[in-house]
Simulated scan of single mutants.
Amino acid sequence: MEFQLKYITPDIKLSSYDDRLFKTEVVFDHHMLVWFISGETKIIQADESHVFKAGDIFLIPRNQLATIINYPKDGLPHKSVVMHLSVEKLRTFYAPLNAQPKEGAPTKIFHFKNHPLLESCLASLIPYFDMEDEIFPEEIASLKIAEAISILRRIDPNIDNLLANFEEPYKINLADFMEKNFMFNMPLEKFSYLTGRSLTTFKRDFSKVFNTTPQRWLTQKRLELAHYQLSNKKRKPVEVYLETGFENLSHFSYAFKKHFGLTPTELVGRRTVQ
């Protein structure tokens, strides 16, 4: 596996990956503006999924759970430029402006395809990744981030509802959130933060709601979803484990057999015979 990250500042990086696929389950602390140079990415969220290809530009909101699967394609590595739009940088940008974000505005992935202004802004960063011994000036980085934000606001004026909103997660309905997001293989600390709770309070509330431990409940829910995908949606085990919260295929097969008495492959075999 050849996965490389190169930062020119803490907020701007180039990633490159040339193995078969790379999967990660994340919740970002910052908004992420991404430009694909080559390769393909599938982003799976609770309510929807997206497939992005070379030339696409998109913005992932912070504090959103997602499974991300990166693929090399057409003999080229998966390669992208990523810019973090941190709360600190956004506060600085919006300080002189009178932006009033709407409460309850939807937090979604924004897709800008190959918008020429954004592409030009992000492509201008490429030469800096080749500067081996020179330090990328912070003032230039700040200017580039401000340029990107300005372009985003020009493309979509409603984006202020996302970028100018600096609130942290507040206490929300635990059952609703977990039923919607159980397939993401996140540490319990992340689940507790996103539901507006300390880890101790999260475990206590979880026990009251579900009458079991978080880990047992999560495993059972993921296995039930996997079984449904295999038997009803006619999908393959190698596709299913990637999207149901399991770290690798062997662990998925072991847990599946322990719970259902047969492996995912055996279940698919029965389906084929029928």
Rank of each mutant, 00 (worst) to 15 (best):
Q100D: 04
K257L: 09
N185P: 00
I109T: 14
F166M: 03
K73G: 09
V81W: 02
G196M: 01
Q100A: 08
T92C: 06
Y17N: 14
F177K: 08
L21D: 13
D19E: 15
Q274H: 11
Y128G: 02
F177W: 11
K23D: 11
F210E: 05
L267M: 12
R235G: 10
H84T: 02
K6A: 15
K144D: 08
K53E: 04
K208T: 12
S16W: 00
S38T: 01
R154K: 09
F3E: 11
H111V: 07
S49W: 15
L162F: 05
D205Q: 12
L267N: 02
F252I: 06
Q100S: 08
D47L: 03
Y241N: 09
L188D: 06
E88D: 12
M178N: 06
L249H: 06
Y228H: 05
E138F: 09
S250G: 11
S231Q: 14
A226H: 08
R62P: 01
L223T: 05
K13C: 10
L188W: 04
F22Y: 15
Y170S: 03
L5E: 11
K234Y: 08
L122M: 15
H251V: 14
E247I: 15
L223P: 02
G245M: 08
K53S: 10
H31K: 03
P169S: 04
H115E: 15
D176N: 04
P106D: 03
F256S: 04
L162G: 00
D130S: 04
D160Y: 06
L125K: 01
F246K: 06
R154S: 15
Q229Y: 14
L33M: 02
F202G: 08
N211R: 05
G196L: 03
S124G: 04
H251I: 14
Q45T: 15
P237W: 02
P106R: 04
R153P: 01
L218F: 02
L188E: 10
M83A: 05
A164S: 03
K203V: 08
I68H: 08
I145A: 07
E103Q: 00
K221P: 05
K23L: 13
C121D: 14
G39I: 13
Y254A: 13
C121N: 15
K6V: 08
K102N: 02
H259D: 00
V34N: 10
Y241G: 09
F256T: 09
M131G: 01
H78K: 14
S49H: 13
S16Y: 03
H78D: 12
A54T: 05
F28I: 07
H50P: 06
D156I: 01
K102Q: 13
F136T: 10
L152A: 07
K258V: 10
Q274W: 13
P214N: 04
S120I: 00
I8V: 14
R20H: 12
E132P: 00
S231N: 15
K190T: 13
H78M: 13
V27N: 06
L76N: 12
E119R: 09
E139N: 13
A95Y: 02
V26D: 09
A226M: 07
A146G: 08
T272P: 00
F177V: 11
H259A: 11
T24C: 06
T263G: 12
T67D: 15
L5G: 09
K42Y: 00
I155E: 12
F36N: 01
E168W: 10
R154F: 13
L249E: 06
A99C: 07
